[in-house]
Amino acid sequence: MSDRVVHPIEVESYRRMRARLDTTHLPPLTRAVVERVVHSAADLAYADDLVTDESALERAHAALHAGAPVVTDVAMVAAGITRRETVCRLAEAEAGPGLTRSAHAVRLAFDEVGPGALWVIGNAPTALEELLLLDARPALVVGLPVGFVGAVESKAALRASGLPAVSNISEKGGSAVAAAALNALLYHPLSPSKDAL
Rank of each mutant, 00 (worst) to 15 (best):
A117K: 01
A156H: 15
E58I: 00
L128T: 05
P164Y: 07
A179Y: 10
S191F: 09
P115G: 06
L186Y: 01
A136Y: 06
P125F: 05
K155F: 08
H61D: 03
A62F: 00
E112V: 15
V106F: 08
V71I: 12
D53N: 15
T100L: 13
V51R: 15
L190G: 14
P115C: 08
V74M: 07
L64T: 04
N123T: 13
L134D: 05
A124S: 12
E153D: 15
R59F: 00
V71C: 03
P125L: 11
A156C: 03
V87D: 02
A124K: 00
H104V: 03
L99V: 15
V141M: 08
G173W: 03
N168S: 11
D73S: 13
S154V: 13
V77C: 12
L163Q: 12
H188V: 02
V70R: 06
V77R: 03
P189C: 13
A105R: 07
D135C: 06
R137G: 02
L90N: 02
L133W: 08
V74G: 09
A179S: 10
H188P: 13
E129S: 13
L144P: 07
H61S: 02
L140P: 04
R89E: 15
S55E: 14
R107G: 07
R137P: 00
R83M: 07
A95H: 10
E112R: 11
R137D: 15
G114E: 02
G96S: 14
E85D: 15
S167F: 09
A160W: 00
D49H: 10
V106Y: 02
A56G: 04
A109D: 01
P164Q: 03
N183T: 06
A103F: 00
V146H: 04
A180K: 07
P164K: 01
D73R: 08
A103R: 06
A95F: 13
V166H: 05
T126L: 05
M76R: 07
G98C: 05
A176T: 11
G116K: 05
A105S: 11
I121K: 04
L134A: 11
G96F: 06
A160P: 00
S161V: 12
L132K: 01
A95V: 09
A156I: 06
D49T: 07
G173T: 11
L131M: 08
V177K: 03
A139I: 07
D73T: 05
G114P: 02
V141F: 12
